[in-house]
Design a protein around this nucleic acid. Structure first.
Lengths: 300, 300
DNA sequence: GGCCGCCCACAACCTCCGGTTATGCAAAGC
DNA sequence: GCTTTGCATAACCGGAGGTTGTGGGCGGCC
């Protein structure tokens, strides 16, 4: 079974026609046609029934579909890995982070770095934690910033700084003098709130704590990213409980913020592969991230 | 990336030499040598360093190893599946079961079937539950017999009959008149026993119940298959708690048996693919299995 | 030390797979 | 009815992937 046949089969399944599949694989239509026939009579059964000149997948083909897709995916991953291993990145700084951190921390640290080292090159991206681990092991990127403890055993994970969960509210929600004091979680009872449906560890912890508040907060809108919650709070939709970086994002006057009373810790991690130690530029960058993070958490 | 290269790379990694790998793949040594070079300069980095004429995997190669093996395995599985779909089995009855059931139930039912239909063909095998599901979906076999509820969503699972967990003991252990009565689990306290380290659901259930007995049974030997426990009990090593089929295996006088007092149910399942319904021979066979199982569970 | 065996690399050669272009043909669409 | 769309066939070509034959470095053994 040649990989080409597998790819072709997959392409035909997804596109629905030989011609389109051929286009997808950058080969001519007859080549695809012939290859498919070859695959079929090597297998000993038809993959597609030709009904009125069109293709229709046979039951056998459908049974193979899942496995085929898995193989395609795995081979694709392998090729990403080998490609990234082949050409030792001329780009010294490839960083990915969760969407939460992108606009504030990552953007800020990068501009600081480019002030310090004007001509440094960088590749930035955002990913959720699981995809981040995959990208790091596949060497698509070198450093990952996240608030989640992934516990990935093949990656090194270092703590950059610690903060705490914050409650944010529309401007003028709390009297000015209360702003420095923590907000007891009971004070959220029956308040209008933006729900958080984030699936990470922090999201689950928040969910667990909020479930204990009685009467429950009034949640009309739930969001999957902290930044959306921040935007909605800024528009006056209600309160939200978010990580300390999201709390500080945007204009200083866009929201009010107070620490949550049961002190919930949020940890900023940097992840990288353990094999090759960080080079000077990368170390410098992480220093800047740490400094910026600490500065952000201290302000206001 | 051609599949051939992946196979070759894997073969060289496992055998440690190009020559051996070539032999494994049934090609000549120069072919393997050339292909490996081709793969390397397509990848852009060396997979093996040639040190004093021998091969040594580079760090990059080791990083690829896991993924390569996964792909090899998946492709191998796909080929099994397609091979089994290609030639519609001329063998009407392909059955697999757990080792526990093989010698008694499967062997017995098969001989009964061959008495009823003398020239019927059959393929028998034994596998543990997880591998059994794999074999069924890959169409290596058509029917699986097991005592475990696998909960596999892509397979139909029907109940053939129900029995209960038994305690077995060396001959003469219990007075004759007690044999018909259940044995309270407390009676196992401080008794010499054969430990069961089976990882299936039944094994875990037994473990949980036995943990409550105090003082704990004296376990000198632990085994991973119920049949081994039976053999050791027959040799006088102590008591054991086993499924009702193992309890009846071998010579009628080899062990004594009594039901366990907390009535622990054991269910005999037959599994098959839902797509193609059972043919008459297969139905007949399952009938025989059910009858034989009920007869076995009734006797003694 | 010299011989042998093992293992890898290179050369010359061959076959056929996987690709091309050109063309035919059946069915659907306007 | 003509055009369009999509698959199949034919004729051709290059190169990947296989072969045999050979040479050279290294280790083990007498």
């Amino acid at each position: 079974m040649h990989l080409r046949y597998i790819e072709l089969f997959h392409a035909v399944l997804t596109t629905g026609s030989i011609t389109a599949a051929a286009k997808l694989l950058n080969i001519s239509q007859p080549a695809a046609s012939k290859a498919l026939q070859h695959a079929e009579d090597r297998l000993g059964f038809a993959l597609f029934s030709r009904v009125r000149g069109r293709l229709q997948a046979t039951p056998q083909a459908l049974l193979m579909r899942d496995r085929i897709e898995k193989i395609i995916q795995d081979v694709h991953d392998l090729e990403r890995l080998t490609k990234n291993m082949g050409q030792p990145g001329n780009c010294p700084l490839r960083v990915t982070c969760t969407p939460t951190l992108a606009l504030t921390l990552l953007a800020g640290a990068t501009t600081l770095l480019r002030k310090a080292i004007p001509d440094v090159m960088a590749e930035l991206s955002t990913q959720h934690s699981a995809a981040m681990c995959e990208s790091l092991t596949l060497r698509d990127t070198d450093i990952g910033l996240t608030l989640q403890d992934t516990g990935h055993q093949n990656l090194r994970q270092r703590v950059l700084c610690r903060g705490q969960v914050m409650v944010i509210a529309p401007p003028g929600w709390w009297p000015e003098k209360e702003l420095t004091q923590p907000l007891p979680i009971e004070a959220l009872a029956n308040q209008p709130m933006i729900g958080i449906t984030v699936r990470d560890a922090l999201g689950r912890a928040l969910h667990g704590h909020l479930a204990q508040v009685s009467p429950a907060p009034r949640i009309a809108v739930s969001v999957q990213t902290y930044q959306l919650a921040h935007a909605l709070v800024a528009k006056g939709e209600g309160l939200a409980v978010v990580d300390p970086f999201t709390a500080r994002c945007g204009d200083a006057n866009s929201v009010q913020m107070r620490p949550l009373k049961p002190h919930l810790e949020v940890v900023l991690y940097a992840m990288h592969r353990p094999d090759n130690p960080l080079d000077p530029v990368q170390k410098r960058f992480l220093d800047l991230v740490r400094q910026l993070a600490q500065k952000m958490l201290a302000q206001r």
